[in-house]
Amino acid sequence: MINKTVKNAQEAVADIPSNSMLMMGGFGLCGIPENCIKALLEKEISGLTIVSNNAGVDDFGIGLLLQKRMVKKMISSYVGENAEFERQLLSGELEVDLIPQGTLAERVRAGGAGIPAFFTPAGVGTEVAEGKEVREFEGKLYLMEQWLRADFSIVKAWKGDTAGNLIFRGTARNFNPIMATAGKICIAEVEELVQEGELDPNQVHTPGIFVQRIFQGDNYEKRIEHRTVTK
């Protein structure tokens, strides 16, 4: 098997330049690539376009990249947890493209799967439909949406092997497997990196073909946004 391992997050993100387009897995703060975000913060780059369902919170996740003014544009479905985000948006420093969550997921999936466009019912008759082709199929209206692809996709998995095969855990899976397919270079950080042959192929969620770089991350905080418990 082809060995995809790199030493650490710094090495993994070393060649990400200013003005590149990145995809980042995660839903809220669940399943975000914490180590790569920290490594990006150490770099002197800006003008990034980031495709991510959310934009983190003020002091964690993508919110940290916003604080450092590294982001030019966010492509997301929901961005409501972040005061700095709001400030930059209202002042015009930041652009945002809001997309229905299922459309975002399918555009990423299509990007990875080599499907340049598809039709979806989401957003028909709304602002989202402005400027888009609408077509009727079997009596119902659908919008044409186009694929999304990125220079780099950065994902976080639970376990991975040196061949780049990935296994996710719980709802930390979310956008990670589809984004892995849609970056020219996919960087995967995992909680546990094992040798090839140690993962059961039956259990692999993302086949290694989609992953170009993999490393074992450390010090995962896994911050919880809303800790709700049954007493």
Binding site: R169, G170, K222, H226, R227, V229
Partner: peptide, 18 residues
């Protein structure tokens, strides 16, 4: 919602609640 000892950051709903 989980009991305190079963809270898992990898398991949330769409409202980001555990």
């Amino acid at each position: 919602f989980p009991t305190e000892d079963k809270v898992d950051p990898d398991l949330i709903n769409a409202g980001k609640q555990t």
